[in-house]
C-alpha cells in the first residue's frame, strides 16, 4: 500500500545570532525518515528537545521564517510543497496540537470547531462530533479558559475530525492529563486509524504509544535511530538499537532499569 506520508532525510535548521556578531546554524532535525500508512498509527517517540514538534510544524509548513527545511516530504505520493499543502490542510491533513493555548482565548468553542462557517449542516456536524467525544452542546458556548485539560484535548480532536481526515498529526496531545484521560485521548486516535486514516502520534511517552501504535519510530537528537513494530517492541525481543533498548527498559513494567553500558557506548 502506498504510504499516506513519506518523510525521507528531513532536516530542519535555524540560523541565529550567537555571542557578539557570530551567526550560527542550529540543527534541530538532522536526518529523519519515516512512513505512515493509511489505517496505521505510527508513533514518533523521543525525549524533549529531540525535534519532534518541528516535524509536525514542517509537515504543515508553519515553521518560523528563520528556519530551513531540506529533504523530501511526500503526501499521498507527491511532494508536499507549501503551495500543495494549502489545499488539504485542515481538511484531509489535520493537526492535533498540544493543548488549550492552541485555541483562540477570545472565541467560543463552537465557532472554532466550525472554523467560522455558519451553515446548519456544519453546525450539526460540529454538534455530532463534540457528542462523539462526550461533549454536550453547552460546550459550544464556552470559552477556552472554561475548559479542563481533558475537555480541551477532546475539543482539539473534534476540530480535527470535523471533515474526513486522511492524515492526522497529533503533536504531544497528552501532557498534563492524568493516565486515564490520556489513555482515552490516544484511544480516539486508534479509532480514527481503524476508520482508515493514517495517524502520526508524536509523544515522549513510550508506554502510551505502545498501547495504541502499530509502529514506533524512535528519535534522538534530531535523528531517527530506530523504526520497529509495536509488537516486536512489546515482546521485548525486537529492540536492536541501544537507545530503544534503554527507553524500553526504563518503562515501569520493565523495572525502571537504568541504561546499560551499550547505550553509553553508542552515545559516545
Amino acid at each position: 500500500m502506498e504510504p499516506i506520508l513519506n518523510v525521507a532525510h528531513l532536516s530542519v535548521t535555524f540560523s541565529r545570532y550567537g555571542r557578539g556578531f557570530s551567526r550560527t546554524k542550529l540543527s534541530a532535525i538532522e536526518d529523519l525518515s519515516l512512513t505512515v500508512d493509511p489505517g496505521q498509527v505510527a508513533a514518533v517517540v523521543g525525549s524533549s528537545g529531540s525535534g519532534k514538534s518541528l516535524l509536525a510544524h514542517a509537515i504543515f509548513h508553519i515553521l518560523p521564517p528563520n528556519s530551513r527545511v531540506e529533504g523530501t516530504l511526500l503526501y499521498d505520493g507527491a511532494p508536499l510543497t507549501a503551495h500543495r499543502a494549502a489545499e488539504p490542510r485542515g481538511r484531509e491533513l489535520v493537526l492535533i496540537p498540544q493543548g488549550v493555548t492552541y485555541l483562540d482565548p477570545m472565541m467560543k468553542v463552537g465557532p472554532q470547531v466550525c472554523r467560522g462557517r455558519r451553515d446548519p449542516a456544519v453546525r450539526a456536524r460540529c454538534r455530532e462530533v463534540l457528542k462523539r467525544y462526550g461533549l454536550g452542546p453547552d460546550v459550544e458556548d464556552l470559552y477556552p479558559f472554561q475548559l479542563s485539560g481533558g475537555m480541551a484535548r477532546r475539543v482539539l480532536i473534534a476540530c480535527a475530525v470535523m471533515e474526513r481526515p486522511r492524515l492526522i498529526v497529533a503533536d504531544e496531545p497528552t501532557p498534563g492529563l492524568d493516565a486515564r484521560t490520556a489513555q482515552r485521548v490516544v484511544g480516539h486516535f486508534r479509532e480514527l486509524a481503524d476508520r482508515g486514516a493514517g495517524v502520526l502520534l508524536i509523544t515522549h511517552d513510550l508506554p502510551l504509544a505502545l498501547s495504541v501504535a502499530d509502529k514506533i519510530v524512535v528519535m534522538h537528537a534530531g535523528q531517527t535511530v530506530d523504526e520497529i513494530s509495536a509488537d516486536q517492541l512489546q515482546s521485548g525481543y525486537g529492540p536492536s538499537h541501544p537507545y530503544t533498548r534503554a527507553l524500553w527498559r526504563a518503562m515501569p513494567q520493565n523495572g525502571f532499569a537504568p541504561p546499560s553500558g551499550d547505550l553509553e557506548e553508542w552515545l559516545t
Partner: peptide, 13 residues
C-alpha cells in the same frame, strides 16, 4: 506569535 495563530494556519484558515 501565539499558538492559536499557528493552529489556525495549520487548519488552512
Amino acid at each position: 506569535e501565539r499558538d492559536y495563530i499557528l493552529f489556525a494556519r495549520a487548519r488552512g484558515e
